[in-house]
């Protein structure tokens, strides 16, 4: 894998975690900036123009979700959220506000760096937009012909399944909430009918995955949504 060096902003009030994240980032050659509050974070984000931002959800001067919302007004840089376990609602709020991924505390350096790499890779891939083919595993999506093939044989997908797949596959490694999927595929009137998504995702998995109960590409984030992984 090619080495990507990037400017990363860390917004976190705990000095130990800040230091460890910084060290982990710098060990891979990234440039790290620190902020310990929302206010400082926004200033740093505005001046340093980071390519990735790591945000803690509980900050002394407010909620990390507010930070993301403000940030998304003018920046498209990927955001990784740090959160406590058992607070799905906070994670969903952060993701809906525009975060791209989340990490549950405590986390190891390995986990963190894997996520950082995935987000930065996504960033560069978006650079070559207009790529008409998405390949993963033995599946190939041809966006121009609107055809999905597996091992060279065409797969029969319903319109909804096709929409789900293309929407997820277009942003690999990003966590997409049920609500976001409902809004994009079904329209804004279906915000709460999350079982629609689950049923169609189950069917889609049966067609895409080798073993639907052990998925490799259409990963479930329990209680939150889905993540599409290209895989090796």
């Amino acid at each position: 894998m090619s080495e990507i060096r990037a400017r990363v902003l860390i917004v976190e009030d705990d000095a130990n975690i800040r230091r460890f994240v910084r060290m982990a980032l710098e060990s891979e050659g990234h440039e790290a900036f620190e902020a310990d509050s929302i206010k400082r974070g926004l200033i740093e984000a505005g001046t340093r123009r980071p390519e990735l931002i790591v945000v803690d959800l509980g900050l002394p001067d407010g909620d990390g979700v507010d930070f993301i919302r403000d940030l998304r007004g003018w920046s498209a840089a990927p955001v990784i959220v740090l959160s406590a376990r058992s607070s799905e609602a906070d994670k969903i709020a952060a993701l809906d506000a525009g975060a791209d991924d989340y990490l549950v505390k405590p986390f190891g350096a390995g986990e963190l760096m894997a996520r950082v790499r995935a987000q930065l890779r996504r960033q560069t891939q978006q650079g070559i937009a207009g790529e008409p083919l998405i390949r993963f595993g033995d599946v190939c999506i041809d966006l121009t012909r609107r055809v999905v093939e597996r091992n060279g044989h065409p797969l029969h997908l319903t319109p909804i399944e096709y929409r789900l797949l293309t929407y997820l596959a277009a942003q690999p490694d990003r966590v997409v909430t049920h609500r976001q999927l409902l809004k994009v595929v079904w329209g804004p009137g279906h915000g709460e009918d999350s079982h629609y998504v689950r049923v169609h995702m189950a069917n889609l998995r049966k067609k895409i995955e080798a073993e639907a109960s052990m998925p490799r590409h259409l990963i479930t984030e329990a209680g939150i949504g889905y993540r599409f992984v290209l895989g090796e």
Partner: peptide
């Protein structure tokens, strides 16, 4: 579950006609 008919204005609404046979 009726499959949840998508709204008219949804992002992919225009794609309905894309593959009639698979629908």
């Amino acid at each position: 579950d009726d499959g949840g008919t998508p709204d008219e204005g949804s992002a992919f609404a225009g794609m309905d006609a894309m593959d009639e046979e698979s629908a």
